[in-house]
């Protein structure tokens, strides 16, 4: 018995694990996104451009 529910501990643990795993996955994607954007902006601030972008004069492929 947990929270007045039979096998309640197993149910709570399963949903807690679900919440933790999905949160970790979302955090991984978001942190990676911000970190990569920062690095790319830093490289571009140093004057580095891919050839296709530089020749197109903008945000090309």
């Amino acid at each position: 018995m947990f929270l007045g529910i039979e096998h309640g501990g197993f149910i709570v643990m399963a949903f807690a694990l679900f919440a933790l795993s999905i949160s970790a996955l979302i955090a991984w994607v978001v942190i990676d996104h911000r970190s990569l954007d920062r690095i790319e902006a830093d490289l571009q601030a140093r004057g580095l451009r891919r050839r296709s972008t530089a020749s197109a004069g903008g945000d090309g492929p």
Binding site: V29, D32, H33, L36, D37, I39, E40, L43, Q44, L48, R49, R50
Partner: peptide
Amino acid sequence: NEIVRRRIRTL
């Protein structure tokens, strides 16, 4: 993210 990672690698 992976596309941007590859662009950074190229740069």
